[in-house]
Amino acid sequence: MDFEVLSAAIQKGKVKDVKSIVNQALEENVPVRDILEQGLIAPMGIVGENFSANKIFVPEMLMSARAMSAGVKIIEPLFSESGIEPIGTVVIGTVKGDLHDIGKNLVAMMMRGAGLTVYDIGIDVPDEKFVEKAEEVHADIVALSALLTTTMPAISDVIKEFERQGVRDKYHIMIGGAPVTQAFADEIHADSYTSDAASAAEYAKEYLTKKKAS
C-alpha cells in the first residue's frame, strides 16, 4: 500500500481515486487504522498546512475534505472492530435571531476536514435546541456563532440554557463571529474563542486530542 498515492489523491480532491484506493487497501488487508491515520487524516493535515501557508484556497480545501470523507465513509463501518474511536463530536449553529451561515459553514467544513464528527444544526437556532442536540449526540464541543452586535448577546443565552438545564459542565463551549472577542467570551464564561474558521478547527482538534489523552 503506497500511502503517497492516496495522499496525492486527497490533496487533489479526487473522490473517485480515493474510493478506489481505499477499497483496494481493504482488499489487501491494510489495517483500517493505518488507512485512516496515514492515508486519510495525515494528507488532510498537509492540506490544512497549505491553506494556512496561503498556498491554496477554501474551495480546494473543501475538495480535499470531500475526497477524505468519501474514504472515511468506506472504512467507517469497520471502526468499532478495529478499536477506532472518533476524535470527538461537535454541535455547531448560529444563534437565535441571526441568519448568517457562511462563517459557521466554513468552521463546520474545516472541523470535518480535521476528522471531527460535526452536527450542523443551522441558523436562527433556539437556545434549547443546542442543548437538545448536544445531549442527543453526546457532543464534546458546542460551537456558537453570531455575526451581529445585536445577536451576540444570544450566545450568552445559550450558555445560560446549558446552565439552567444543569448540563453546562458536560460541554466545552466555543464561540466566534465578526463582533465576538476574547473579552466577550470571558464575560459570558464561554470556554474558548477563536477568531476565524481555520483556528477554530485547529483549536477544536487540539482540545479533543488533549481531552482524550487525559
Binding site: G97, T149, T150, M152, P153, P179
Partner: peptide, 8 residues
C-alpha cells in the same frame, strides 16, 4: 449606524 452589543 447601528446599536452597540445589545439585544433588540
Amino acid at each position: 449606524f447601528t446599536l452597540p452589543a445589545m439585544e433588540a
